[in-house]
């Protein structure tokens, strides 16, 4: 039993970098793509944006696991033949982008109209207003939601083990299959993820508090 725990911890340490890389990559790509989608959906006329809206709803309305299967197993039939790691990163980024885009869109909508009217009265041009008023005001408003989503995405990375991405869950499960010590390995996994999400949530709360303090200075 001690042996199994030990092996699990070693496997966890080996898998953690992949989990963190996929997570950070997925969050980064997801935020950039989500921002672009959210901005287009907010600024462009509805007639142009409904395909984008349909895509976002399709991603938000289906399980991440099914999306992974569709991309990884279905992709090769239409010429998208990706390695597990790349497929995992693409899937995670797309999944994140759909949710992030909704956060950004809501953020744009939440900028008080009066603050934009004030800018207009003072002569700021439309691009100046977007760049200097809308974006900063929106960024502050959406930050907690972005961080929240990022934490949720850590947990989704575990699903990638099912399409054989060699991340944390996959590695530690490997120990389980080799030793049949599934209980011990799963326990180690649970504790590692718990620590990971608690740590990021804690860091996020600290960040939020710092920003609040700065805004109230």
């Amino acid at each position: 039993m001690i042996q199994a725990l030990n092996d699990s911890l070693i496997a966890a340490a080996q898998g953690l970098p992949m989990t963190l890389a996929l997570w950070l990559g997925g969050v980064a790509i997801g935020i950039v793509a989500g921002f672009l989608i959210g901005a287009v959906r907010f600024f462009a006329p509805l007639a142009l944006t409904w395909p984008l809206a349909a895509l976002v709803e399709a991603v938000r309305g289906t399980p991440f696991l099914v999306q992974c299967f569709l991309l990884y197993f279905g992709g090769p039939f239409i010429g998208i033949d990706l390695s597990p790691v790349v497929a995992g990163l693409v899937a995670l980024s797309a999944y994140g982008a759909a949710y992030f885009s909704e956060v950004f869109r809501a953020g744009f909508m939440a900028v008080p109209k009066g603050q934009l009217e004030a800018a207009r009265m003072l002569g700021l041009s439309r691009p100046q207003t977007v760049l200097r008023i809308m974006l900063p005001v929106m960024a502050l408003a959406v930050l907690p939601s972005l961080v929240n989503l990022a934490v949720i995405l850590i947990k989704e990375t575990a699903v990638l083990s099912i399409i054989t991405v060699p991340e944390l869950t996959f590695r530690v499960q490997g120990v389980g299959s080799a030793t049949f010590a599934f209980a011990e390995t799963t326990l180690v996994l649970a504790l590692v993820y718990w620590a990971l999400t608690e740590a990021t949530s804690w860091a996020a709360r600290g960040l939020e508090r710092r920003i609040e303090r700065r805004m109230a200075a």
Binding site: K155, A158, F182, T186, A190, E198
Partner: peptide, 13 residues
């Protein structure tokens, strides 16, 4: 804090 997948594995194993 723990992925649902891992929770399911805990219940199962």
């Amino acid at each position: 804090g723990v992925p649902l997948l891992i929770q399911l594995m805990l219940a199962y194993y």
